[in-house]
Design a protein around this nucleic acid. Structure first.
Length: 405
RNA sequence: GGGAGUGUAGCGAAGUCUGGCUAAACGCGACGGACUGUAACUCCGUUCCUUCGGGUUCGUAGGUUCGAAUCCUACCGCUCCCA
């Protein structure tokens, strides 16, 4: 055993007194980032509607991208020529790439699954393309992401026990192949993905198998695909304790505020989800007082801010004003979200202006990033249960028929 | 003045020849909803009134018929062409 740190490693800072929630940091070749964290999703090398400048301004740390989609277009070789994905998309912080495992699920009508790998009929021009654990590693090595995900199969939650067992075991074998195929363990960290749907024995077999491989981090997959929140918590209850405490733990595809808290309480450090940007593009804002469907006519004359409780964060607060003029943008405390009214955003959506989708996307991401900042503070103060109670109350989860994001 | 065409639900537009299966296609707009490791500015509802039994509609007024948006008569409006 050497003391040499892997490319990606977890530093533990604090354990919340009442819940055991973790407060830590993840070290990567592109910087060190605070956990628990939420990672915006930029599938095709772009967080839809939000530029890298804005991402940084609103406090993004890691962002996600996708192996399958970048492989299909523009191609991993091309991105390697460009100097890697960071360079290509102009993002100097950490990137995590999903493997294409989710596309095995979401593009299930256009692919064939076998032990060797997955044959996709790609969604752009119909070409047959073969994705194996090894190919997924080659692509991600070319992309140069900080965290790479093993190729797995994201399984529908309500499949049969036998199907889930077979699939989980195959994903486990694929993890093994991925680790062997990994060409750059010194600069990129490979995470394994625990599968097994709602079955304790299968989750356990999956987790134990992956932990035995001593990967730098572990993800829990196959959740938030239609099962209830109660179900998800039940699975996390018996799955999280199986994962090592000195490695980052990533719950894939979760963004609902109550689920974020409940998962952090169960030991999760990292989250991602398309939810904030997807619903933003369709006109739904996430706010501290619940959802705001900005297209609803009741916002037509509403001149209040989008979210009165949202603060703004800027990593580069002072802009150089090349003209020497005073403007609101020179104020380091300037909060663009405070100055935008619901009426204005309603109008932008109504008029189908692209800016509406952009602002809403930034807003929702900022909302979640601030939510995680607040949660980190609550953990540091051993105050997470009170934070949870406040959220449940303020966001209206305690109301009858509550169903927020 | 002469000739041709046309009036359908918020708007556009089918249906009229060959009357019933038409409260009336379709599109837009409007109003709701869904969305959680992104084939997604997408998808799904509702959109004459209603106490859900029904009621009142297709420029207006009459007529024919068991039955009319559809056939007949008159009137009103609009568009285009020629003078």
């Amino acid at each position: 055993m050497t003391n040499k740190k892997p490319a990606v490693w977890y530093e533990h800072l604090h354990t919340e007194k009442h819940t055991g929630a973790r407060r830590g940091r993840i070290h990567t070749p592109h910087g060190t980032f605070e956990t628990p964290m939420f990672m915006p999703v930029g599938t095709q090398g772009a967080v839809k509607g939000v530029g890298t400048r804005e991402l940084k301004d609103i406090g993004s740390q890691f962002i996600l991208s996708n192996t399958y989609h970048l492989w299909v277009r523009p191609g991993d070789e091309l991105i390697a020529q460009a100097g890697g994905l960071h360079q290509y998309m102009g993002w100097d912080q950490a990137i995590l790439t999903d493997s294409g495992g989710f596309q095995v699920f979401s593009l299930s009508d256009a692919r064939k699954l076998a032990e060797e790998g997955v044959t996709f009929q790609n969604h752009v021009n119909g070409d047959k393309m073969f994705l194996s654990p090894e190919v997924a590693m080659r692509i991600q090595n070319n992309l140069g992401s900080d965290v790479m995900m093993q190729l797995d199969e994201a399984i529908p939650y309500f499949e049969s026990y036998d199907y889930i067992k077979d699939s989980m075991q195959r994903s486990l074998r694929w993890a093994d192949r991925a680790q062997i195929a990994h060409k750059k363990p010194d600069s990129q960290g490979l995470f394994g993905i625990v599968q097994g749907a709602g079955f304790k024995a299968l989750r356990s077999e999956s987790a134990n198998g992956l932990v035995g491989m001593d990967l730098p981090g572990y993800a829990v997959g196959g959740l938030s695909v239609g099962e209830s929140k109660l179900e998800m918590n039940r699975v996390l209850d018996f799955t999280m304790p199986l994962l090592p405490e000195d490695k980052p733990r990533y719950l894939m595809g979760v963004a609902a505020p109550d689920s974020l808290i409940d998962s952090v309480i169960r030991g999760v450090d990292m989250f991602d989800s398309v939810l904030p940007t997807r619903i933003a593009r369709k006109g739904t804002l996430m706010t501290r007082r619940g959802r705001v469907v900005i297209k609803n006519s009741k916002y037509k004359n509403d001149f209040t801010p989008l979210d009165p409780d949202l603060s703004y964060y800027s990593a580069n607060p002072i802009r150089t004003n090349q003209f020497g003029n005073q403007s609101q943008f020179d104020n380091p405390n300037y909060n663009p979200f405070q100055n935008l009214t619901r009426s204005y955003l309603h109008h932008l959506f109504n008029a189908n202006e692209i800016l509406g989708a952009q602002l809403a996307s930034q807003h929702n991401l900022r909302y979640l990033l601030q939510f995680m900042e607040d949660m980190r503070t609550a953990i540091e103060n051993d105050d997470l249960l009170a934070f949870r109670a406040t959220v449940m109350e303020e966001y209206g989860y305690n109301k009858p028929n509550a169903r927020l994001f």
